[in-house]
């Protein structure tokens, strides 16, 4: 249980660090060449992720986290 709390704490610290540091990091619009690439976009591999998510959804107890689920199968 202590390990779980430690993992959760680390993740929350990472989130807080990102939030606090947000205003001091970033790039100008003309510096986004690499960021605009398809492989850098969230859900850039949309179909791959959808197919993988369906496989994991039907074989594991955890799913989602990246975006909303739903429309899945009745395989619980």
């Amino acid at each position: 249980m202590a390990r779980r709390k430690c993992i959760l704490l680390c993740e929350l610290i990472a989130l807080c660090s990102l939030t606090v540091g947000c205003s001091s990091v970033g790039v100008k619009p003309w510096q986004r060449e690499l960021l605009s690439r398809q492989d850098m976009r969230p859900a850039g591999n949309g179909l791959d992720e959808a197919i993988d998510d369906h496989m994991y959804f039907s074989k594991e107890a955890s799913s989602g986290g990246r975006s909303f689920g739903g429309g899945g199968c009745g395989c619980n």
């Binding site: 990091v25 986004r32 739903g70």
Partner: peptide, 26 residues
């Protein structure tokens, strides 16, 4: 029935680094 809540933060860290954090509750 199911209800879900998703809070997300996407941050450009540098000209070649993108970071994303999501908290979800369902």
């Amino acid at each position: 029935r199911g209800q879900g809540l998703l809070l997300g933060l996407t941050q450009v860290m540098s000209r070649n680094w993108l970071s994303e954090v999501n908290l979800s509750l369902d």
